Simulated assay, not measured.
Amino acid sequence: MKRIALLILTNLAVMLVLGIVLQIIFAVTGINSRGIGGILTFALVFGFGGAFISLAMSKMIAKRSVGAEVITEPRNADEHWLMERVAEQAKKVGITMPEVAVYQSPDMNAFATGMTKNSSLVAVSTGLMQNMTRDEVEAVLAHEISHIANGDMVTLTLVQGVMNTFVHFFVSIVSNIIQNVLGGDEEGEGGLGFIASFAISMVLYAVFGAAASVVVAWFSRKREFAADAGAATLVDKQKMINALERLRGGNQHEMQGQFAAFGINGGFSSLFSTHPPLEDRIQALKNQ
């Protein structure tokens, strides 16, 4: 379930790097003083470019971040069973068999990622394999396969691209306004220096980037319900409910990534959560 957190964090990092490049381009060319059209064009290119670069890097970053080992030849009965279940479910939804990986972690966790439906990765933790029944693991796999079949990663990337565009655009506009307010004549003399302007832009990227992440996280929560419903169709509704009950009993943290590390908690943390509360997901399945 680290899939979205990894994509969001990767995107924020890529957007920050592209933002630095964008600010340098503006400083050298002066495009930010030539009108809204130039800013919007750059914002679109850099916004969607950053989102799709993040998507292209998603499998590599996911593998490295958790130390996932892709199964090429099953080494034991559990890995053989895992490969068979993923292959069976992939066939049912009409996608190419994803890469299957296992990573060492005591947490009960799993994620799916990849740039396309037919170039994807499903990874499960050792904690998931050890602490869940096979029926429950099968349901978790079906949930991740449903994410792939639904094209959630690409759709989320498009949403992220739109948000990135707004971030780049408003950072450029607001930083330009601040520079005009704080100093400088019509010829640009006496205004803020490049370092001060750059610092202002980076602060704005942090603020607007966090706001954009709230929107992306909201969309992600909506897609979780759809993946749960897809899993219920692929395997069995009760198996998916049992898997979620097991996760709830295991005290899994709904919020991951940098926001958990920052210690954000309470009601505010729910804005950044990429998954709905387990209770809500269980109730939604029961109501199907």
Rank of each mutant, 00 (worst) to 15 (best):
I25Y: 04
I178A: 06
M240F: 03
V215D: 01
G263S: 02
R281I: 03
T41N: 10
N180C: 00
S54Y: 09
Q160Y: 01
M129H: 05
T116F: 08
E138C: 07
G67R: 13
H147F: 03
D78I: 12
S33D: 08
F268S: 06
V235T: 15
M202L: 15
S220R: 06
K117N: 11
E186R: 11
S201R: 15
R64V: 03
A43I: 07
M15P: 09
V203I: 15
V235W: 04
N118D: 13
E279G: 09
L278I: 15
S119E: 08
R246Q: 10
R64F: 01
T155V: 12
G30H: 12
I20M: 14
A196N: 06
A211R: 13
Q23H: 12
E245Q: 15
I8P: 07
L192Q: 07
R3L: 04
A68G: 07
V216T: 14
R246S: 14
F111M: 11
G50Q: 09
E79N: 09
L247Q: 06
G50A: 04
F225L: 07
L7F: 13
I95E: 02
G191E: 03
L82V: 08
L141Y: 02
A210V: 13
H275V: 07
V214L: 07
Y205P: 06
D135P: 14
E79V: 13
A139Y: 09
G257W: 14
I25G: 00
N242E: 08
A226Y: 04
S33W: 07
T96Q: 12
I145M: 14
V17T: 11
V100W: 00
S213P: 06
T126H: 02
L9I: 15
P276T: 04
V214C: 04
L40G: 02
G127Y: 05
A110V: 09
K222A: 09
A231H: 04
S54H: 10
H275N: 06
L141H: 06
E144V: 12
T133M: 03
Q23Y: 13
K2F: 01
L6G: 06
E79C: 11
G37E: 09
N131E: 01
T72C: 00
N32A: 07
N180F: 02
M1V: 11
V45G: 03
G30Q: 11
A229C: 00
K239M: 11
T133H: 03
R134Y: 00
V140L: 03
G49H: 09
S269A: 15
D152Q: 13
S197W: 07
